[in-house]
Structure formats: structure tokens, C-alpha cells
């Protein structure tokens, strides 16, 4: 593929459109900021509709360039969401592990994507703010987790201690994981604050993007329905897989150096 579309690039490179969805304040923008700038800070950027960012993700045999649409937080912007997920190849559906309702909302987004977005879309379910469930030293601002000293420093992602992370955790990893498994979603618990698991999410997505839907830097895909369909999301949802060039040989298990 290197010879086909990106003569200058050492490795074949593909663009992957990724959209972030989820209830307001679950930490979507923070996750992106962590991924793109390896930074965590209050969001100073006013987001109108959605913020656009890019970040490359180096896999051993190719480069994935994520084009990230971080959708706006306010509930009413939800009706704009179809515009952003319409031709996305991947989605990060984020909830806040300390807020049960946010998982409910996340499930709605998953259902919406499964029904309306491109059929091959890779969805990762992400429970963010994991740091609030752990009593690691750096999270000085939360008191409730203090009791579980013995778990400090452990890797927290894998469903340990669900239900007993003090009062803070409201969504058990087990529940979310089993839901994710049922729906064939990638699943991670992250902390944008500590950076825990953040890159892993994107790497896993990069690896899971079907070769068939990689189309180089998004050139030459078939003509979609144009923007006519833009607002009416999902009307031509098979487009992404059509005519997509066969990707490089890279296996799906590659690591990501992003």
C-alpha cells in the first residue's frame, strides 16, 4: 500500500474518522486532550458543535491517523450528532464510572450507532474517571476511596473491586464489561486525569479497524450521498466499506506507539 497512495510515507498511512459520544461532562474532551497532547486541564476551548483534532497512531506496519470529532457536551447538540458519526469508522462511547446514568446514556449511543452509523463501525465503550475510584495518592481531591489502601497502585481496569470502591464508583466494571461483550464492543476503563489506559483505547481501536475499511487518507472513497444524507444520518450507511482499498498486511494485533 505504501506504493499505492502515499509514496512519500515510509509506512502505509490511513485516516480513520473517530467520533466521541457520551453524556456531558463524562470527560470526552479530556480524553481527547490526553490522547492528543498528553495533557489534562480544564477545557478552555469553546466547542461549537464538535471539536476537531487529529492524532497519529503508529502501528508496526502502518500509521493510523485519527481524525477525531469530539462532540459538544450539551444535550441539545445530540441532534447534531448524526452529522458527526455519519461516516465515522470508529466511535468512543464514554461514560463516567462514578455516574450510573451516564452508562445508560452510553448504551443509547451504542444502540444509535449500531442502528444508524456505518455497519462496520468499531465502537469502544469507555468508562472514564477511573482515578476517582482508586485511592491513589495523586487523586487528592476525592475522599471516598481512601478506605481501600490495599488496592492502591494495582491495575484497576479489569473489573476488580466493583461495587466496593467506596461510594464513588457507580458502575461496576463487570456489568459494563458484560454489556460490552454482548454488544461486541471494545471495553476500557480509563482516567483522562492520570492517563491510565487512554492510549490503549485508541490503539485497540486502530487495531480493530477492519483492513477493508482503510482507504488511505480517505481519498477516493465512493461518492456518498453527499450532504443530503449528512443530516439524515445513516441513509447510506454502507458506504464506508464500499470500494475501500484493501489495506496493508498488518495484522490486527500490532502495538501502537502513539
Amino acid at each position: 500500500m505504501a506504493d499505492s497512495s502515499q509514496p512519500s510515507a515510509p509506512k502505509p498511512s490511513s485516516s480513520v474518522k473517530l467520533v466521541l459520544l457520551g453524556e456531558a461532562a463524562v470527560g470526552k474532551s479530556s480524553l481527547v486532550l490526553r490522547f492528543v497532547n498528553n495533557d489534562f486541564q480544564p477545557n478552555k476551548e469553546p466547542t461549537i458543535g464538535a471539536a476537531f483534532l487529529t492524532q497519529k497512531c503508529q502501528l508496526p506496519t502502518r500509521t493510523i491517523k485519527f481524525e477525531i470529532w469530539d462532540t459538544a457536551g450539551q444535550e441539545r447538540f445530540a441532534s447534531l450528532a448524526p452529522m458527526y458519526y455519519r461516516n465515522a469508522q470508529s466511535a468512543l462511547v464514554v461514560y463516567d464510572v462514578t455516574k450510573a446514568s451516564s452508562l445508560v446514556k452510553a448504551k443509547h449511543w451504542v444502540a444509535e450507532l449500531q442502528r444508524q452509523a456505518s455497519p462496520g463501525i468499531v465502537i469502544a465503550l469507555v468508562g472514564n474517571k477511573l482515578d476517582l475510584c482508586e485511592d491513589d495518592a495523586e487523586g487528592g481531591d476525592e475522599g471516598e476511596g481512601e478506605g481501600q489502601g490495599e488496592e492502591a497502585g494495582e491495575e484497576a481496569g479489569e473489573g476488580k473491586g466493583e461495587g466496593d470502591d467506596g461510594k464513588v464508583r457507580k458502575v461496576s466494571a463487570k456489568d459494563a464489561k458484560s454489556y460490552a461483550d454482548d454488544e461486541h464492543l471494545l471495553f476500557f476503563e480509563t482516567s483522562a486525569k492520570t492517563g491510565h489506559n487512554v492510549n490503549d483505547v485508541f490503539t485497540a481501536i486502530a487495531n480493530k479497524i477492519p483492513e477493508a475499511s482503510l482507504k488511505g487518507p480517505r481519498g477516493g472513497a465512493t461518492a456518498g450521498g453527499g450532504t443530503q444524507a449528512a443530516i439524515s444520518a445513516g441513509q447510506d450507511s454502507s458506504r464506508v466499506n464500499l470500494n475501500a482499498r484493501q489495506g496493508a498486511e498488518g495484522g490486527p494485533k500490532e502495538g501502537c506507539a502513539c
Binding site: 461549537i48 458543535g49 447534531l80 452529522m83 458527526y84 480517505r218 477516493g220 472513497a221 450532504t227
Partner: peptide, 14 residues
């Protein structure tokens, strides 16, 4: 735009 599947409104909406 159509050929490249670039959605104008995501740009022009703001």
C-alpha cells in the same frame, strides 16, 4: 466534497 466524503456542514456549522 461528495466524492471525498467530506461533510461540509461539520465545517460550516460553527
Amino acid at each position: 466534497l461528495v466524492r471525498n466524503d467530506v461533510q461540509l456542514s461539520v465545517v460550516s456549522l460553527p
